[in-house]
């Protein structure tokens, strides 16, 4: 079909919660090994767009959708498309750190075990590499069997990133991953995101323009469910084409 490998494309996507239209006719694509920021004021549909990409919105009663989300050349909303396989390839990090009520080690091995990794040595290796990628290994390597909820907020969020990386998904979705954290932890995680784009395609939802500017390569600006602009981040921020984008960037709406 297409010659893209892990490319996600969105074609004419519209969504509703009940009668309320959330996204209106959105088309965009996410390039490999880059960070794409989805920006916009609160309630503009950023998170909905993100959660439509791994079909997490399916859980919401009354959710309705038109249009396609194409992952590796297949529409993920097609009949018979396995949502479990999809989510194996698209990891997600949430707004608030949400470690499982288990030990640090179990948090990481949960995903691989689900997908059939049984070998103890291999699981051990996954724990180490995932935690190293998430820049948490040095802090927790001696406490792997301690309960994850005892970690600090920033550490928990990095654990959640490690957990998402444990099944090595080519695409990583991040829904305002630092908004609930203190500035120092936030900076660490931003650095981490830039580091990770070498190996992963990252889609980052943020309402923070500076953050988008610091970490993303291209950006989508959503306003009231419409995709207003979709361009290189630098271009959007330095020379917004639409006045709504400019208003958002300069802080007049938000």
């Amino acid at each position: 079909m297409s010659n893209f490998k892990h490319h996600i494309e969105v074609h004419n996507l519209s969504t509703w919660f009940g009668k309320k239209a959330i996204l209106k006719d959105i088309s965009c694509y996410f390039e490999d090994n880059t960070v794409t920021a989805i920006m916009g004021p609160s309630g503009c549909g950023k998170s909905t767009l993100l959660r439509t990409l791994n079909r997490l919105n399916d859980l919401v009663p009354n959710f309705r959708r038109e249009g396609e989300v194409v992952f590796r050349g297949e529409n993920i909303y097609d009949m018979g498309y396995s949502v479990y396989d999809l989510r194996k390839h698209i990891g997600m990090v949430f707004q608030r750190p949400n470690p499982f009520p288990m030990s640090i080690r179990e948090n990481i091995t949960y995903g691989p075990k689900l997908h059939g990794v049984k070998d103890e040595d291999e699981l051990e290796k996954i724990v180490e590499t995932s935690l190293k990628k998430a820049a948490l290994w040095d802090e927790v390597q001696d406490d792997l069997d301690k309960p994850a909820p005892n970690l600090s907020g920033g550490q928990q969020q990095r654990l959640c990133i490690a957990r998402a990386l444990s099944i090595n998904p080519p695409v990583l979705l991040a829904d305002e991953p630092v908004s609930a954290l203190d500035p120092i932890s936030a900076a660490k995680i931003e650095e981490l995101i830039v580091e990770l784009k070498k190996d992963y395609t990252i889609i980052l939802v943020t309402h923070n323009v500076q953050q988008a500017f610091r970490v993303s390569d291209q950006a989508a600006f959503l306003y009231l469910g419409e995709l207003v602009e979709f361009e290189k981040t630098k271009r959007i921020i330095e020379a917004p084409a639409d006045e709504r984008t400019e208003a958002f960037i300069t802080g007049r709406i938000g």
Binding site: D85, N98, P101, G111, L114
Partner: peptide, 26 residues
């Protein structure tokens, strides 16, 4: 919290495995 279930589902877990391993455990 709903976010715990979502975290499990987002890893590709089935509903049942999420309920059994995460929700009931919590």
């Amino acid at each position: 919290p709903m976010s715990l279930r979502e975290a499990s589902l987002a890893l590709g877990a089935t509903k049942w495995s999420t309920t059994w391993n995460v929700t009931l455990r919590a």
